[in-house]
């Protein structure tokens, strides 16, 4: 399971990088085609929006892989150790249930419902675009199961600790007096 997760992490990393780079290029092309070439592209608005939705969903899956979504742990952290761990399992199971019901089942139905609804400017259908919901949902479901197993085996703790950045800070802040340019 660990090796599958590593491969998925890697794949999602590159999917997010490519989608983000595409997003920047599409918006830049929208400006260039209009202001410089004087021939505004017809597809850039729709193309940028849909790339953005895919970026949002796949990056969300990537962040689930790191357990990085925002949660309020103030109360949970006051619980005794065993309950803390049990609660962490429940949290993963709730995430799993939501993902299966809404993203995979609901998203799949949304995709089939809009399968024949053409987009206005791109040669795809809205239903094809909705496929990002069940696909990202499947990845999130895998990550939830992975962490349930990890929590039960004890290989993962109940929380992800944010790394203390104080040392990094000291290293990256430049001195105020100007550095000589190379």
């Amino acid at each position: 399971m660990d090796s599958v997760k590593k491969a998925l992490d890697r794949a999602l990393y590159w999917i997010v990088v490519v989608l983000f780079a595409m997003l920047v290029l599409i918006v830049v092309w929208q400006i260039v085609s209009r202001q410089v070439l004087g021939a505004p592209a017809s597809w850039t608005d729709e193309g940028a929006r849909l790339t953005f939705v895919w970026l949002g969903l796949f990056a969300a899956a990537f962040v689930f892989g790191e357990r990085g979504h925002i949660a309020v742990e103030f109360v949970a952290r006051k619980l005794p150790g065993r309950s803390e761990r049990a609660l962490a399992v429940v949290v993963q199971l709730i995430t799993l249930a939501f993902t299966v019901v809404v993203l995979i089942w609901g998203g799949g139905r949304a995709a089939s419902n809009a399968w024949l609804q053409n987009l206005s400017a791109l040669p795809f259908t809205l239903g094809q675009m909705y496929l990002a919901l069940p696909v990202a949902g499947t990845l999130i479901a895998f990550y939830s199961l992975y962490y349930v197993a990890g929590l039960l085996r004890g290989t993962h703790g109940p929380y992800v600790e944010l790394e203390d950045e104080s040392e990094v800070v000291a290293a990256t802040v430049e001195p105020l007096t100007p550095r000589k340019e190379a």
């Binding site: 983000f20 920047v24 953005f52 019901v101 993203l103 139905r109 949304a110 909705y130 919901l133």
Partner: peptide, 25 residues
């Protein structure tokens, strides 16, 4: 059934907005 479909559809369309692009960029 419809609650699941609508919830998924709303998540998609909530992000599907050009002005929101200012955020990631």
């Amino acid at each position: 059934e419809q609650a699941a479909l609508v919830s998924a559809q709303r998540i998609f369309t909530g992000i599907n907005s050009f002005p929101l692009l200012a955020i990631p960029l």
